[in-house]
């Protein structure tokens, strides 16, 4: 009888563990974003047709020209994508080479979106079946990837680009160029 007394404390100990777990979770809630597991890995092979009339489409080989790129996953129907347009333009003015991947979009909608919000892209591929999006582990719009000159994904930014993200992304681009 004596030696099993300690087992009576086991339930309380288990509850204590539960408490620590959920309390720590309540204090710093987990991020709800799903990060890509493709950082440090090469882009998958793809060749997308142009998403608008005045820019060429996008293929993996375009990203392997020795120059780092920003790959912006966007869509005309996505509200935060419109919100980040000024920041993208700022990045472009600062010398970033930005390519776009338009998710599930009609060419006329993309054209209207670019006419309204400006066009910072050097190339825009139309990803009608989200194939490239899935291929690079992106789970929403907008997302922005830093890709180095060999076509290796170096960094992922989830959500719209805010003002304070602009210098950070430029820094990441510079690192990718090394």
């Amino acid at each position: 009888m004596k030696q099993i007394r300690w087992t009576l404390w086991v339930p309380l100990a288990l509850f204590g563990a539960f408490f620590v777990l959920v309390a720590s979770q309540l204090m710093n809630p987990a991020s709800t974003t799903v990060e890509s597991a493709m950082i440090g890995k090469p882009l998958p092979d793809f060749a997308l047709k142009p998403a608008s009339a005045d820019r060429p489409g996008l293929a993996t080989s375009d990203m392997q020209d020795g120059q780092p790129h920003l790959l912006n996953v966007f869509a005309s129907w996505c509200v935060p994508c419109a919100a980040e347009a000024p920041q993208l333009s700022a990045l472009e003015r600062a010398g970033a080479n930005i390519v776009g991947v338009a998710i599930r979009d009609r060419p006329e909608d993309v054209a209207a979106f670019l006419a309204q919000h400006g066009n910072p892209y050097s190339r825009i591929g139309a990803d009608d079946l989200s194939e490239v999006q899935v291929g690079i582990g992106s789970s929403g719009v907008p997302e922005t990837f830093v890709v180095d000159g060999k076509g290796i994904i170096r960094y992922q930014h989830i959500g719209d680009i805010r003002d304070q993200d602009v210098p950070m992304l430029l820094e990441k681009l510079k690192e990718a160029a090394l």
């Binding site: 009576l8 404390w9 339930p11």
Partner: peptide, 28 residues
């Protein structure tokens, strides 16, 4: 609502914690 979550957590810790302590002391 995380804030209400903390309140419920505090309550349940009070109830369950004291009941399990009582159990550990008395069940023997």
């Amino acid at each position: 609502d995380p804030e209400r979550g903390s309140f419920i957590l505090a309550l349940l810790t009070l109830y369950i914690g004291s009941a399990l302590t009582l159990f550990a002391l008395r069940a023997g």
